[in-house]
Every structure is written in structure tokens, then in C-alpha cells.
Design a binder for these strands. Sequence first.
RNA 1: GCCCCGAUAGCUCAAGUGGAUAGAGCAUCUGCCUUCUAAGCAGAGGGUUACAGGUUCGAGUCCUGUUCGGGGUACCA
Length: 543
Amino acid sequence: MINTIQELLRTSLELKGYPQPDKVMVARTKQESFGNYSTTLAMELSKTLKRPPLEVAQEIVSALPTNPAITKVEIIAPGFINFFLSPQFLQKVVAEINQAGANYGRSTVGKGQRVQVEFVSANPTGPLTVGHGRQAVLGDTIARILSWCGYQVEREYYYNDAGRQTRVLGHSVYYRYRQLLGYSEEFPEDYYQGDYIKEIAKKIKDEYGARFANDADNPIFKQAAEEAIFADIRKTLARLDIVFDSYYNEKSLYDDGRVNAVLRRFAELGVSYERDGAIWFRAGQYGGTADRVLWKSVVDEATYRLPDIAYHTTKFERGYDLIIDIFGADHHATYPDVLAGLRALGYDVSRIKVLIHQFVTLTQGGEKVKMSTRRATYVTLDELIDEVGKDVVRYFFLMRGMKSHLNFDLQLAKTEGEENPVFYLQYAHARIASILRKAQHLQIALTAEPDLSLLNEPETLALLNALTEFSEVIAICLNTLEPQHLTVYLTKLATSFHKFYTEHRVISDNLPLSQARLALVKAVQIVMANGLHLLGVAAPEKM
RNA sequence: GCCCCGAUAGCUCAAGUGGAUAGAGCAUCUGCCUUCUAAGCAGAGGGUUACAGGUUCGAGUCCUGUUCGGGGUACCA
């Protein structure tokens, strides 16, 4: 409908000989009294035309072609042009929704293009925390939206298993293992303190006894830790209905020679150089902030940038049309270097979209707690799911914009859980289910062609209006890659439904009206269910 | 020091690219269940959108500065 109105306005501008702006802005109104859509076009043009906006608005409206969907066009000071949709147009949406069912709102704008969404990517050094939860839910929901809009989506989890972090992890297990064997050395403070390390150590001891007592660098420690921790991570993610298509590890980039290949190519291209025994990348010349070390001199190994660049070359080689990287704020300074590296190698970096989300600040009784996997000061995602359940966890994170620093207090989480707005949405869905059950019980059939013209009370028209907005919201979510618009919308839809529900009985003695209203609430249920599905939240039949 | 993100009701957060009277939930207070689910609805109170300037028809939104918070700024990831 927005497109239609834009076309009408463009036609009017042409008839009047007014200049055509690049974008004719048409937006939903905030208030019912302003109609369904409005444009600020007249106010924008008033400057270039050097005429008062109200006059411009008059002129535009006078040349506006008529359209059956629009009953009224109103001009309001200082120059808004408001459009009112006809009841007939609004009523039609009920039939469309019921016909499309679970597919209502899907689109094909993605044209089957392949998208990779990389997220979570937490190194397997400990359980996922509440902080990871935000990214996990955000990434998964973005993937769901892309897939819903016709993209072919793959979820990927990348992890580092070649650097110092995993070395420390292996040694942490080794020390616990030694302790279990009766050796009494101190456990180093900067090693992983969590109890899960002890459990892994115990398993090794149970299986192999003291065989590795003096073999700190035996790969078994690292491997056992990785395996055990990853098993837990997968389990936690599965509880949130998040399943990755692929896991990609850093080590393989060394094994298959990609890291060296990048290094060689950089040298050939002259974008790297040696200084002080280290190999540097001229990142500054390719959009980075400054030149960066790729290969260290103090230790014979790469910095994280090099494998990161190598990793991203595989994303291009794997042929994705769109590459989405979701990072926490701590990666903010590093990704420009990766992009610079890819640019230097000649890749089209515009295919990469980097989404940076802010952290979750953990508080406990008002005091800020610094989360650290190393020191085992964290609230695990599992604990949170235990406490409030999957739906609340997902919704809790999706309600917030990714740029907001959000505060999280576990003490508050439980009450937040009980009062969470997600139930408001689910309740609307369940209430409708209950009505439909009753209709079935009374053997009132859902007619294929109910008389939708009976749907014309103010609350009903407002509800219809909300229904027509769904596909617009999906489009916004796709363009911005910000799912929280959908949560805001679904709340609006639920409010609209609950108001309708308290004002009007669906099932009554009036059969045609009952059938029309049944079709309406069924449509609301479908949109609610589809929306909740996109958020990965359950749509219950009963509560 | 420099860079990025933020600061909105008592609390947690919203507010497509600058638009109309800044909105929800929680908390507080007042009404509404013989009816398809009261996990609901109606209403009240609560705001100098951190502060000071600027841009313009119009600023929570854009620009400059200040204060406070988070994250970076490494041959850590």
C-alpha cells in the first residue's frame, strides 16, 4: 500500500510539474485520527517551491488520482497529508491471511540468494553466558527473518582453537588433573577457574590414570576440554532452538595452508612488509586505522588478524551473496582490519555486513559484576533458561535494540520472567485458540467466504489496520536487520486484539457476524503465530 | 590522550531515513469477571529526552563542546 500511495503522489507531482524527490516518504501514522498513512512531502517541497507548505499540500492533493482503497485525504497544519484507507480494503486482508496461513507475510525479495550469518563464535573455554545469549538469540532471529524473506541462509559458528587461549585451557585441565593425582602445586590464578575444568580432568584421570602426569602439552587435555565444552554449548543453544549449520575452526586454516596463502599473497601484492622482525600489514592504506602486525616476532605465530582474514576469504570462496558478521562491542576495533585485508586481496567488501551489539551489564544486588570466563564470574545462559524458560529468554533479548547497553540483574530476572511481556502476546494467541475451540464445539463452521463487510466497528477496523502492517514491519526488519521492530509490532497487534476482545463477542446468535469475526480472529492468530515463529517463541494453544 | 556505543518516567526499555500530543511493561493508585481465558480491559499519577550551545518551518533523532557509563586503542582473541 505504501508503494501505491507513493505512486499516486508521484503522479500528482508530475501533473503539477513539481520536482520529484529521490524518495517520497510515506509512513504509518502514530494516531488513528491522522488516518492510516501520512506524508510530509508538502513540507519538504515548500522550500524549493518557495511557497507555504499548506498551499503545496492543497496543490498536491488536488492533482491526486483517486484510488478505491483510499476514502479520504486530509491536509493538516503545518502541511501533513493524511490518507484514510477504506473499510473494504482493510477487510480484504482477512481473506488474504486466511488463505496464505502459515506462509502469510513471507516474501521472495531474497530471490534465493545465499547468506551466511556468523554469530556466537564463542571460544570453547567455558559455558555460554548471559552475554553470549544476547548474540545467540539476535543472530538466530536475523537468520530466521532472512530465510522468511527468501534468502538461503546458513548459520556458522567460528572458533579459535589455535592460539594462546586454548593452550591455557589445556593447561588448566592439566593442573586440575595433577591435583586429582595428588600433586599439590598451586592452581595458577590466570587459568580457567570454573568447576567444569575439574570434571573434565576427572574424566581423563578415570580413563587414563596417571599416564599424562608429566605431559602438560599432551593434546588430550585441550581436546577433551573442547569436546566437553562444545557438547554443553550445543546443548544450551538447542534449548533456545538454535542450531548451527556449520562450525568452522581456526586450526583448519593453518592445516590447509590458507593462512600461509594470505601471507604470501600479501607479500606478492606488496601490502605487507617486515619491520623489527615482524610482518606488518599496510591496513592504513586499505581503510584500516593503522598498520598492523600479522606475524609476531617475539613468538613465532600469527596475530588473530591473519587467520580472521584467511577465514573470511573462505566465505567469499564459498560463494555467499551476503555475509553477515555479528560481533560484540569488543570486536569493534578489529573488524576494520579484517575488511582492509580483504580489500587488499581484491574482494568486494560491500557484501559483508557487520553488526555490532553492545554488552549485557551484569549486576547483582545493584553491584556491577565483571563477567569473566577465566575467573568463572558469570551467569550462565543455562541458569537463565532454567530460571525463566526459553520464550522469556529469547524475547527478553529481542525486545532491546542491539545498540543499547542492557542491564541484567539475575535477582530481577525471575520477576521479569513472571511479568514478561512475551506472555501478553502468547495470551492473545491462546485466547483466540480458545474461541476457535468453542466455535468448533458449537459446530460453527469457518466459512470460506464470510461477509467481511460486517467488520466495521472502530476497534475492529483498528485491528484490521494492525494486520495490514505486518508485511511492512517484516520489510523494516529485513532492511535494518533489527528484529526488535517485530516485537514492538506484535505488542501493538496484541493490544489491538485484546481491546477488540473486550468490546465484542466473537461467537453470538448472529451467525454471519460470528463467522466474519471468527475469520478475523483466525487471521490475527495466524499473524501472531507467524511473528512469534520468526522470533523463535512458542505460540501456545492454551495458557 | 584518541576512537566507537550509549544516557529518554521511580526501574527495564521503545520511538524506519529529522515530523503531529515522546510511548510500552514493571512498580503505585481507582474501577471492570453469571459471558469465547481477568496472564485481560478502562482510567490516574509519573518527563526540562544528562548538560550547554548550534543547524531549520520542525530536533529524543543531525553538528560542536561538557559530564557520566560501557567497549576499544597490543606482536591478547
